[in-house]
Amino acid sequence: MEKLEEQIAHLTKTLEELSDVIARQDTEISTLTRRVHMLMEREAHRDAAGGGGVIIGDERPPHY
């Protein structure tokens, strides 16, 4: 009986730790999803404004 109680305690602790990990991951995924969405919108606005030119490595920037 004591061995089973010990196993239950260990499993309960592991379950709580995994729950914390999943909660942190959910928060991080939500943050990253918002950032990707923001970057995609920003790039769409940039493309719509006509600023999507191709830069060639040996070409001087326009301010020179």
Rank of each mutant, 00 (worst) to 15 (best):
M1F: 09
M1C: 14
M1W: 07
E2K: 10
E2Q: 10
K3E: 11
K3A: 11
K3C: 05
L4R: 05
E5W: 00
E5C: 08
E5H: 02
E5F: 03
E5G: 08
E6L: 05
E6C: 00
Q7L: 09
Q7I: 01
I8G: 00
I8C: 06
A9W: 00
H10Y: 01
H10G: 07
L11G: 04
T12P: 04
T12F: 05
T12I: 07
T14D: 14
L15D: 06
E16K: 12
E16Q: 11
E16C: 06
E17N: 15
E17T: 13
L18G: 14
S19Q: 12
S19K: 13
S19T: 03
S19E: 13
D20Y: 07
D20M: 13
V21S: 14
V21P: 03
V21W: 07
I22L: 15
I22P: 10
I22S: 13
I22G: 06
I22M: 15
I22H: 12
A23R: 11
A23F: 11
A23H: 09
A23Y: 11
R24V: 06
R24Y: 06
Q25L: 15
D26Q: 13
D26G: 12
D26K: 12
T27C: 07
E28H: 09
E28N: 10
E28R: 12
I29F: 08
I29Y: 05
S30Y: 01
S30D: 07
S30R: 04
T31W: 01
T31F: 02
T31H: 01
L32R: 08
T33Y: 02
T33G: 05
R34G: 04
R34S: 04
R35Q: 10
R35V: 02
R35P: 00
V36Y: 03
V36W: 01
V36S: 03
V36E: 05
H37G: 03
H37F: 02
M38R: 10
M38A: 15
M38Y: 03
L39I: 15
L39C: 09
L39W: 06
L39F: 10
E41N: 14
E41G: 14
E41I: 09
E41F: 04
R42W: 03
R42P: 00
R42L: 09
R42F: 02
R42M: 12
E43C: 14
A44M: 11
A44V: 09
A44P: 06
A44Q: 14
H45V: 02
H45Q: 01
H45E: 00
R46K: 10
R46S: 07
R46L: 14
D47P: 00
D47Q: 14
D47N: 13
D47R: 15
A48G: 08
A48P: 00
A49I: 06
G50W: 08
G50I: 10
G50E: 13
G50M: 10
G51T: 01
G51L: 15
G52R: 13
G52F: 12
G52A: 14
G53S: 08
G53M: 10
G53P: 06
V54Y: 03
V54C: 06
I55K: 05
I55N: 03
I55A: 02
D58N: 13
D58R: 12
E59Q: 12
E59H: 03
E59M: 08
E59P: 00
R60D: 05
R60H: 05
R60M: 04
R60I: 00
P61M: 03
H63G: 08
H63V: 07
H63W: 15
